[in-house]
Amino acid sequence: MTMNATAPASARGEASGPPDPDPAGSATGGAPKRGIPRPKSTPARRGSVFLSAHPRVRLGFLLAAPLFWLGLVYVVALAALLVTAFWSVNSFTGEITTEWTLDNVITVLTGSLYQTVTFRTIGVALLVTIIDVALALPIAFYMAKVASPRARRILVIAVLMPLWASYLVKAYAWRSVLSQDGILEWVLAPFGLHTPGYGLPATVITLSYLWLPYVILPIFAGLERVPDSLLEASADLGGKTWPTIRHVVFPMALPAIIAGTIFSFSLSLGDYITVNIVGGASQMLGNLVYTNVGAANNLPLASAIALIPIAIIFGYLALVRRTGALDNL
């Protein structure tokens, strides 16, 4: 598709809208007055002309591949998983029995174990999200609005770099830090404080740590989009710093903040590795799903349990959809 990009053609002075091209290459009359040659009619150009005249076809081209991919790979897979929740498994041979049953769903809905674990998991995920937002806001604000461009560049690197030190390595590093013999104890002991040891608090700390960059980045991007002129206008109108932040910056950054929370919330909701490493004897929803699929080979029950986080996430997405957060992820 080699085309002469410099060849101007049929400039009709229409300011907007797709240029209403001549029907593909048929135009012979009305050669441009100033002797500018018309582009040659190649198949590529004809295609191009056709496309610009038919936005629906253009849309079709754009959507076909991604929708095929997501539809086939993801929607079908997810639907199959949901269907599996209504099947059962032969406990000894481990073969799935494809007979419809509500047993798994009922077990999950009524079992006290699942309720306890669900509430525990939601609690952990919420706490992690709150902590992450609280930590991300000041640093993202500093990066976006205070730091010099040079400092900003360095800060972005500093925030991104820990992402590369493998999840597992970081989780084990926290195991080491939080141990009774670890750095935290060593730092806190002089103040009469102690490390929380392994358990849910350790899980919250570690998960907050792991997802922090994923929360900082969207908030930073969101704050960067708040025009400085707006802040100056607020200041000119006598707005003090904090009111400006509260009434101008915060509302504009809210979708970005919510986008960040989607990361921390959903990543925490499904985690089972961190809780295994620093969570002491606790288990979360992820562990139950993992044990049932990996250990018990009971995919139907695992699928039924998976319905819980799916429902929670869908609920959360529906809740935040109006804020426009989904456009800011």
Partner: peptide
């Protein structure tokens, strides 16, 4: 649909794709 694979916990995406 685009957001879902990242918004749903990895373990769900994992077992769904495995299956």
């Amino acid at each position: 649909l685009v957001i879902l694979p990242i918004a749903l916990p990895g373990i769900i995406t994992g077992i769904a794709l495995n299956n």
